[in-house]
Amino acid sequence: MKFSKIKYIERKTGEILTEKVPGEKYLKFLYYNPLGELPLNLVVKKKFLTEFYGKKMSLPESCKKIVPFIEEAEINISEAKKKVEEFTSFNDFFYRELKVGARKIDYSEDVLVSPADGKILAYENIKDKDKFFVKGDKFSLEEFFRDKELAKKYEDGVFVIIRLAPVDYHRFHFPADGNISESKLIDGWYYSVSTHAVKQNFRIFCENKREYSILKTEKFGDIAMFEVGATMVGGITQTYKANSFVNKGEEKGYFYFGGSTCILVFEKGKIQIDRDLLENTQKGIETKVYMGERIGVSNL
């Protein structure tokens, strides 16, 4: 597949924009150059590199990276609870909390909202993923869940990917009211989850470290919520109380430094994803959404 810049639709305006990707030249080498395969498999995907860099971003001296990053990425830091000088490390800035009201949450009971800021791809059936990604990738829900019964439960269901770029707000939230289970860890590698990488190999979602929990809801059935780690994502922290009732918009957890992904899997027939998101996905382009923004409605 030929390398090309990442284009996405800014949902609020309908504009087609080009994403600024930190380290894009390295991603191009690793995933689109045959010579990149060796360092990718020997070093980049391994845990030690991500852990090393994650720890480095938690040191006080990493604060010097904050202002240049804000300026380059054009981040609206006025949304953050803390002022720039109050952050104790780059990671402290990276998983920053936002001020109350910084994200408008649609509380309509039949509405499903995005759990995070990011760029979304939505499939009414996971089998439709070949319309966007390289055909022939062997992806299966059984391997994704590593659970045959859950794979059967969500067979032919809706599959939603929200990709968080390094410039995004990196806390994730609940998309609906419901009862949330404990989080289950599935260990794995640390491939990049950038569109550059995933277009080459959709199986990254089966191979990377990930955690999932089940949100039992009245309006949308049982939602499988996945958080997927990636290159330079030093960790996934769950901040919610397991086996409790949670409200739409409440925080579930956060990612450490790096790009990462939230995935929602729905049982067949329980949810109707908004038409514009489905149509954009069918055209092979992601849509920028924000935490709390409507992405679908109940079919129940």
Rank of each mutant, 00 (worst) to 15 (best):
E149K: 11
G101T: 14
E71Q: 05
A73R: 08
E79D: 07
A73N: 15
V67I: 15
V84Y: 05
C63T: 09
A116H: 10
K65Q: 13
I66A: 00
N76M: 01
K131R: 09
F139Y: 15
E124V: 01
K83Y: 01
L150W: 07
I161E: 05
S78R: 13
K64N: 09
K184I: 09
E109Q: 15
R146F: 12
S89T: 05
K82D: 03
K82M: 01
R146D: 14
L150I: 04
L98T: 04
G157A: 06
F145L: 10
I105Q: 11
V167Y: 06
K99I: 05
K82N: 04
I126K: 03
G178E: 15
I120Y: 14
A165Q: 01
A122V: 14
S183H: 01
I180L: 05
Y169P: 02
G101M: 15
G136I: 14
F174N: 14
D110R: 15
G178D: 11
Y154I: 05
R96D: 12
T88A: 12
S114M: 13
S108V: 14
F144V: 10
K152V: 04
L112E: 08
S78P: 01
F93T: 05
K129E: 12
K81C: 04
L121V: 10
R171F: 03
A151G: 08
K81A: 06
D106K: 00
L150N: 04
G157S: 10
P166C: 11
A151T: 05
F133K: 12
V113A: 09
Y123R: 13
S89V: 09
E79W: 07
D130Q: 12
I186Y: 08
E74P: 01
V160R: 12
I105F: 07
D147G: 05
E143F: 04
P166H: 06
F172G: 01
I162W: 04
V100W: 07
L164C: 03
Y95V: 08
S140W: 00
D110I: 09
H170E: 12
D117S: 09
E97K: 10
F133S: 11
